[in-house]
């Protein structure tokens, strides 16, 4: 992945806000890969992943003027848009599939967690997730890479919703703490 600083990205977003298409091209060159990879890994279909990717960059084009640095780095904002749009599309597909195949879909692959963990890339993420208690890791992976809601996760795992909520909260807070420690060690 191309490393870029929040400042560079921020300047590009400011240019996009002024309808500078070259700046959108530069942002695409930085984030097109990660955005497409995320969409592809959630949706598992190249055509849909391309549509979602296009959607994400058009949203950036449209909303760059409203981007506020206080609400996080450009990178975090762009990837949040990418995850949200991918998950949105995935849930529409699942609803559609559930209507068509009411009985057959209910028990879909129970091993989505171990599968996701096996194909996890990126040493940083693997380390950070490996440091979490297993039950927190499970709910984070199901939410982020599986696109499931807390309620769906509770249903899949047969765990009370309140417990899933706690694990998700604790897991993400811990992941953030680990990330901060890692950044301090680099400095």
């Amino acid at each position: 992945m191309v490393e870029s600083t929040p400042d560079d990205d921020g300047r590009l977003l400011a240019r996009i806000a002024r309808s500078d298409a070259d700046a959108l091209g530069a942002i695409y060159d930085r984030y097109g890969g990660p955005v497409y990879s995320l969409a592809q890994s959630l949706l598992r279909d190249a055509q849909t992943a391309q549509e979602v990717t296009q959607d994400v960059f058009l949203a950036i084009w449209r909303d760059a003027a409203a981007y506020d640095p206080q609400r996080g780095s450009p990178r975090a904002w762009i990837l949040a848009v990418a995850h949200h749009k991918s998950v949105d599309t995935l849930r529409r597909q699942r609803r559609h599939a559930a209507v068509e195949l009411t009985d057959t879909v209910t028990g879909d692959d129970p091993d989505v967690v171990s599968e996701a963990l096996q194909r996890l890339e990126g040493a940083r993420v693997q380390r950070a997730l490996a440091a979490l208690p297993a039950e927190q890791r499970t709910v984070l992976v199901l939410a982020y890479y599986g696109g499931y809601t807390q309620r769906e996760i509770a249903g899949r795992l047969g765990t009370p919703l309140g417990t899933v909520k706690t694990r998700m909260r604790d897991g993400l807070l811990r992941l953030r703490a680990a990330l901060r420690t890692a950044e301090e060690m680099v400095r």
């Binding site: 990660p34 995320l38 296009q54 993420v125």
Partner: peptide, 27 residues
């Protein structure tokens, strides 16, 4: 915003796949 910096890390765990070159032009 702060938690989104953490979720942005998770994107690195998605298997990398390259978008087709034509997608850039379409966007």
């Amino acid at each position: 915003a702060s938690l989104r910096e953490a979720t942005a890390l998770l994107v690195e765990g998605a298997p990398r796949s390259a978008p087709p070159a034509a997608l850039r032009d379409r966007v």
